Amino acid sequence: MKALFLSGFLLTILLAAEKPQTPNTLTAKEKSEGWQLLFDGKTTKGWRGAYKETFPQKGWEVENGMLTIQKSDGSESQSFGDIVTDGEYSDFDLMFDFKLTEGANSGVKYFVVENYPKPKGSAFGLEFQVLDDDKHPDAKLGRNGNRTVGSLYDLIPASGKKANPIGEWNTGRVLSKGKHVEHWLNGKKVVEYERGSDAFREDVAMSKYKAPDYNTNGRFGEAPKGHILLQDHGDRVYYRNIKIKAL
């Protein structure tokens, strides 16, 4: 009887250890390491519309522990608008889960600075591309696949990536320390670069970001700090488990 009790007790411990972490929560270990949730799964606290003081009144919503935007007309930041964090970040480790609908386009931007005048499209910043590579035409634009999911949008293509099928969750990560930046997709590093390096500036010079508007307030992508942004590109996309750690 004692042996049965012990084996049952051990099984309970093992099952508890294997239990998936509840979305939009932090473990005790993560808290001790300095991680902070950017989305609590229930409210839009900590977010506001880009170039606005409040959160958008329509379009973006919290649904079953997910932060999602309604589908509109596929345009960039015209229907409901992008949303940004209240805080700004420089050295950080950012993680987020995203789920695409068929043909969807979005993006997670960082080092976003709200300079005026406000641009017609999305606020300026470096972008971790969130895209259905098979069904959205943007995947075939740009150069060498640098507009596909996980890429540094229009600058550096993601390499060796493995994206999960449409309708399943993917985990993105952006790691920024000093000038060094990495993109990770589903646990694998897919992009690595140095902000402000000669190679980075050469990529900018071959991209849409060479336009004067992107460089009026300093070289594109080289701001010392900035907001995190979730992009409205007119398609239904879901986000959850958005968390950050200052480095």
Rank of each mutant, 00 (worst) to 15 (best):
K52V: 07
G87R: 14
F111D: 05
D132N: 10
D133N: 14
F124V: 06
L94E: 04
S75D: 13
S75F: 10
G87L: 10
F80T: 10
I166K: 06
G65N: 09
L94G: 03
F124C: 00
V149A: 13
K52Q: 15
G142F: 01
D132I: 04
E53Y: 08
N105G: 06
F80G: 07
E53T: 14
V62T: 11
D93I: 13
V112C: 04
G145E: 04
D134I: 11
G167S: 11
A123W: 01
Y51N: 08
E88W: 11
S77R: 06
A139Y: 06
E88C: 10
V149Y: 00
S159L: 13
N144D: 15
K120H: 12
E102R: 13
N170I: 03
D132F: 07
G167T: 04
I166E: 02
S106P: 12
G103F: 07
Q129Y: 00
G81I: 10
L155N: 04
K52L: 14
D82L: 03
Q57V: 12
W169T: 05
Q57E: 14
N105I: 04
P119F: 05
E88R: 15
S151C: 09
S122A: 13
S159V: 14
Q78A: 15
N144K: 15
F80C: 06
N170D: 10
E61P: 02
F55M: 13
N146V: 06
W169V: 01
K99S: 05
W60K: 02
Y153A: 04
V130S: 00
Y89K: 02
A163D: 09
K109S: 11
P157C: 08
G145Q: 05
V62L: 09
Y110K: 02
